[in-house]
Amino acid sequence: MTTFYDEVQELRARYPEGSRSAVLPALRLAQERHGWLSREALEETADALEVTPAFCYSIATFYDMLHLEPVGRHTIDVCTNLPCALCGAQEVVEAFESELGIRAGETTPDGEVTLRAVECLGGCGYATVVAVNDRYRQHVRPETVPEILGELDGGT
């Protein structure tokens, strides 16, 4: 099997020599492997990209999809920006909160699910939009929340 280092070299090859363009793909790859961007993950990525861990950290903290704290095995991102908000996104958030017994921004004690409110996901016409493990669920309403949670493998 190819090592992380090799895969990153493969990513670097897609961009001009000496550019740092591979940093986002590489960080995403590291996050897939470690679940989140731990100190080790960032150091590993920095080494493969021949940059400093500080540089990787600086980049990672700029982008919302890169996690600098552990997240659950599943992530549930509820859009609460205007269009969804106008169509009841708050009730959807609260439905997830009560079903999971956590507040938005938290992870269930068993480390299974992380619930977050997020900015516009670009599905405004199909409110409320919820990204379940980065896959969009549209027209989500409080009633559909239990079903969504049920579908999570080994769901809570």
């Binding site: 960032l42 940059v51 400093t52 500080a54 950290y57 600086s58």
Partner: peptide
């Protein structure tokens, strides 16, 4: 070119920092 002192976060929460 030591790449150790960087900016982290975005917007009002931006800070100057070193790694860990």
């Amino acid at each position: 070119e030591d790449g150790q002192l960087v900016a982290a976060n975005r917007g009002a929460l931006s800070v100057i920092t070193t790694f860990e």
